[in-house]
């Protein structure tokens, strides 16, 4: 009870400090993730091998680290280098981040980039609330997030251990909770990067060993970029049909 209250109070204070309208953020995010499914102009889509991450607006390292930590909570992976704090290293092999989650989030086609700092800020506020109500290190002692912290000072969500990140994410993603759609959209982008390589043409992604598709053991296409399976059936009668099947093969 008190925990939830203090967390909400914390959120409110932090939100007003950043003059962030949660509703505007939600709307923007919804639209942005909508754009995730959007039509890329056909010409451009086939001309560029990847959603161009190059000219994307700069995003501050705190935001990047926070969003990486969230994506890594959805599909966890190994740390990329010694002292990688954003990735918890909870699972072997590459995770959503290595699969391109941040590239996808920052893709100009999504129009999401301007909203990312606000989203990360909101997540860090939730993380601070979680930490204080679960007896974790006093993250509130850290400097304001708008300052670029030295590497040793991590954003609050990054400061959580994997189990806590996952517990908080589960909390935020529970159906019926206030901002659930917002976190679900972020989770969806993370998963799409891993499970579909949504920023790449699939034949290229598979051929170049995209880590998510490789993890699934997604099959290789033919030389022309199309999939075909000449052998596809056990070619055996494996069950008896229902006795009242009608001549067209339908149920009676």
């Amino acid at each position: 009870m008190t925990g939830a209250l203090s967390r909400r109070a914390l959120s409110r204070r932090a939100l007003s400090r950043r003059a962030l309208s949660r509703r505007a953020l939600l709307r923007g995010l919804a639209a942005a993730v909508g754009a995730l499914y959007a039509v890329a102009p056909a010409g451009r889509a086939s001309a560029s091998p990847a959603l161009s991450a190059g000219p994307a607006l700069p995003v501050d390292p705190v935001t990047v680290a926070t969003l990486e930590a969230f994506a890594d909570t959805i599909v966890p992976g190994v740390k990329r280098y010694p002292g990688d704090h954003a990735l918890a290293g909870a699972a072997p092999g590459p995770g959503a981040v290595q699969a391109g989650a941040i590239t996808l989030l920052r893709a100009p086609e999504l129009g999401l980039t301007p909203l990312l700092p606000g989203l990360a800020g909101l997540l860090d506020v939730e993380a601070t609330g979680y930490a204080t109500t679960h007896g974790r290190p006093p993250l509130s002692l850290q400097p304001p997030l708008s300052l670029q912290p030295p590497l040793s000072l991590q954003p609050p969500f990054v400061g959580l251990r994997y189990a806590d990140r996952a517990a908080l994410a589960a909390d935020l993603l529970r159906p019926g909770t206030p901002d659930q759609k917002l976190w679900l959209l972020l989770a969806l982008v993370s998963a799409l990067a891993f499970d579909t390589a949504a920023h790449l043409h699939t034949p290229d992604a598979v051929r170049h060993g995209h880590p998510g598709l490789a993890h699934l053991r997604f099959p290789q296409p033919d030389a022309d970029g199309l999939w075909r399976y000449p052998r596809f059936s056990y070619q055996r009668t494996l069950a008896d049909p229902h006795p009242s099947t009608t001549p067209s093969g339908s149920p009676a």
């Binding site: 959007a38 039509v39 889509a45 959603l51 086609e109 949504a198 043409h201 970029g225 999939w227």
Partner: peptide
């Protein structure tokens, strides 16, 4: 019609 999960393909 392409065999592609990239955004902007099947999403059309």
């Amino acid at each position: 019609f392409t065999h592609d999960l990239r955004l902007g393909t099947y999403t059309r």
